[in-house]
Design a protein around this nucleic acid. Structure first.
Lengths: 351, 351
DNA sequence: CTGAAAGCGCTAACAC
DNA sequence: GTGTTAGCGCTTTCAG
């Protein structure tokens, strides 16, 4: 018993016949081969541009593919080639505009090289992080990972057997990475505030971040040189909400600071909003700075003084490094972007 | 000639031997089968929990898998099952916090159902949109798509042969969708402004968006009832930058509005910043509203009055619909979220 | 230039 | 309970 092929009006084997019962099927390389009267190998070579063809065959192939609407199955292809043309990107929180920009930059470069981005948002959830990334690693050619896990606990990443790029400095791991000079960032901010005449300077950090210590160190170094000490506080999350919540603790305590360096822009934005609610006039009563240069610091009131860490460029470079690695041009170094101070209205001379 | 298996100390066929030359290999189901002294079918069933086993076999499997660090290859699995446990999400611009929230919501539900998210950011690029989405469709079980393409030109989406959910109302397409009541949104905003005593009300839209017309209509309807007309302007992009650029045109023209309804929050934020630069006091000189309720409208000055369109819930529902569809519980309807007015400080009584 | 055939790593009948 | 076997859709030698 024979049936007519839904695609090509040719006869089918029993197995192919089954296909007809499925709701919707895509034509396979065999359908094209039959339709064009060539072998599957020929179709494959044509699809991959591996070879040249006689005009006759080429025309028939072209038409058959067009008529059937054939698109080769990337999964089957990947099984053989071992490559998926997909890159995994694991970030801590897509809600944070810093990471949004990283994604944007990474995505742009990926697209340029015909890679697709597989995104995983670990939602700052340390527990799930590892299993999510391990699952991700199985479906991609390489990964870019942002994680809070200490280097010593990140050895398992090496067992993923996939090219990796980290979004942080990781001296303890033989993995290329990109990041920013955190120490210099806060050093610059502290210097800026000292120049404005501030003496009582506080730092509102986020202790769970691996880079928090570096940021504290930078600010401390700068203040030390001036014989001052840094008043360190902690927000419980790297978010605006957390900045709001921490504000009264910082501003209504015994040692009210003249200026506050925040771990990032989100905390700074929340801090400023709450400070205004508490009746402080900014920047007159307190200068505030962030780090990241997220797009909306510019639209806050007062507009936020911050450090541009070039998030988008960071994503671009991370992706470029990974793709280079995939192409054999390995580069196991750490690349550090230079922080750039953006002075806006949230910092002013101490009065 | 025999060689010893890197994983299991057992003998290898010629083919398996080749494997040794590759840089890094992952063990296959066969390695596990050999190591545990069972058949590949048994390993497969164990991995999928399809069946129960004798304690002896189970123990050996467990140990072999552990020792080899075996993880089953999802690609090979997908080839057979026809499912990838991956959902594609195509959005217009990850930089827009509205979409960020959609991603967040969609991702959360996907994770809950053990799906992974494949993200494509079309970057508002109409030309690449189609090919990007077609490529995406090949690697996923279903897609959520946000696009500016008119329904009439979106027929090709039906040929993707994949379950789909659209992030917009598409009466011309037999595809389930989620969105918001755009007409009601601007109607509510206009009503709010009328209540505050404003009479000269402008709309700063984004003409390329499919929903722009609906938003105009809503505001018009409301003003009509009061015998007023809407002054319509256009921004060239749905971004803060574009809002800034459009501001002087709106505010320094002959018919200066008392209130401006912006297409979205980003345009509104840019507009407010520029208006302040031009010397206007907000909201005294002009009331401004946005739509989307992006997280940072709250931290702008003045804090932005807006419409909450529940972006994150939208992402959640879109994903839930898709997953339901994948599970056979189809639901081809359009779900509309109710707009909710959030009054902050950017709108005030007309003085 | 074109085709035949051997699998990639895994699952799904179907035997035993 | 466990094993055998036939492919999923495609690429890739290797002949002709």
């Amino acid at each position: 018993m024979f049936r007519v092929c839904v695609f090509c009006d040719n006869r089918l084997t029993r197995k192919e016949n089954v296909t007809l019962r499925m709701k919707k099927v895509s034509p396979t390389i065999r359908d094209v081969a039959v339709e064009a009267g060539v072998s599957v190998a020929t179709v494959s070579k044509y699809m991959n541009g591996t070879q040249r063809f006689s005009p006759a065959v080429e025309a028939r192939l072209k038409e058959a593919i067009e008529r059937l609407g054939y698109r080769s199955n990337p999964l089957a292809r990947s099984m053989i080639t071992g490559r998926t043309r997909t890159i995994g990107l694991a970030i801590l929180d897509i809600s944070n505009p810093h990471f949004t920009n990283v994604v944007k930059g990474a995505n742009r470069i990926a697209l340029q090289h015909d890679y697709t981005l597989l995104l995983v948002d670990t939602e700052e959830n340390q527990a799930r992080e590892r299993s999510l990334i391990e699952a991700l690693a199985q479906r991609v050619d390489g990964l870019i990972v942002s994680s809070r896990m200490p280097d010593e606990e990140s050895q398992w990443m090496l067992d993923l057997n996939k090219p990796l790029v980290l979004l942080r400095r990781s001296p303890g791991l033989p993995i290329p990475s990109v990041g920013i000079d955190n120490r210099l960032s806060t050093y610059m901010l502290a210097r800026h505030l000292l120049n404005l005449g501030h003496r009582r300077i506080a730092y509102l950090g986020f202790g769970q971040a691996r880079i928090n210590d570096e940021r504290i160190r930078g600010a401390r170094e700068c203040l030390d040189e001036a014989g001052l000490t840094l008043d360190v506080h902690d927000a419980h999350a790297p978010t605006a909400k957390a900045g709001e919540q921490a504000c009264s603790r910082v501003m209504l305590g015994p040692q009210r600071p003249q200026a506050v360096i925040c771990y990032n822009d989100l905390i700074a934005l929340g801090f400023m909003k709450e400070a205004a609610s508490l009746g402080f006039k900014l920047p007159r009563d307190v200068s505030v700075t962030g780090i990241d240069n997220v797009p909306y610091g510019e639209y806050a009131a007062p507009a936020l003084t911050t450090i541009d860490i070039q998030s988008e460029k960071m994503g671009e470079l991370a992706m470029q490094k990974l793709i280079d690695g995939l192409a054999g041009r390995s580069d196991a170094e750490h690349s550090m972007f230079e922080p750039r101070l953006i002075v806006r209205e949230s910092t002013a001379a101490c009065g």
